[in-house]
């Protein structure tokens, strides 16, 4: 019988990153920040880094029956220099990890990451010799969407949550070098 360890030290992280504690910067630049965040939120250009089944689900999301177009987030650019939201869907293996890291480093400016599905979030059912147990040990993740694969409504809800996060100014732009690999 294996005991499931909690995936990270919540008490410490809650102190640093709790959403309610994040406040806007100084009052003088309040209006500019507000305008900036509004415009960022309403035109997120996504880079879909899909490797397996979650890529199929993401593809059908911007189709005829379901639509992420209402959020302005279905404009997919397959080029990291022109996008600011990275959606990681699918299993990430050790072979793929340096490529993911270099794609993230090539993205400019304020950038955010959504980890979609069980495999990207924590390795999923694959606890083996070649799968990275969670993308957060390579790049900083903002929003997790559980499911295998998550349904289209869940992904759209994830985008809405990302919007809230950007409006509050939360950003994890620092690479987690202190987090041990494979936690």
């Amino acid at each position: 019988m294996s005991k499931v360890k909690p995936t990270r030290d919540f008490a410490k992280i809650e102190e640093e990153f709790l959403l309610e504690k994040l406040v806007l910067t100084t009052k003088a630049s309040g209006l500019i920040d507000w305008l900036k965040r509004r415009s960022q939120v309403n035109s997120l250009w996504t880079f879909p880094f899909g490797t397996s089944c979650c890529a199929l689900e993401f593809m059908s999301l911007s189709g005829e029956t379901q639509s992420a177009g209402e959020l302005g987030a279905d404009l997919t650019r397959h080029s990291p220099e022109r996008s600011d939201l990275l959606v990681v869907g699918g299993t990430i293996t050790e072979k793929q990890a340096p490529i993911l890291k270099s794609v993230y480093e090539k993205m400019e400016g304020p950038k955010w990451v959504i980890a979609m599905g069980a495999c990207a979030a924590s390795g999923g059912p694959y606890n083996t010799y070649s799968v990275v147990q969670g993308v957060s040990s390579i790049i900083p993740v903002d929003v997790y969407i559980p499911g295998c694969p998550p349904s289209a409504e869940a992904v759209i809800a994830g985008f809405h949550l990302m919007k809230e996060r950007i409006l509050k100014g939360a950003q994890r732009g620092v690479l987690p070098e202190t987090i041990e690999k494979g936690l």
Binding site: V141, P150, A157
Partner: peptide, 8 residues
């Protein structure tokens, strides 16, 4: 639906 959530 299992809803998405923040990293923290």
């Amino acid at each position: 639906i299992p809803s998405p959530g923040h990293f923290e």
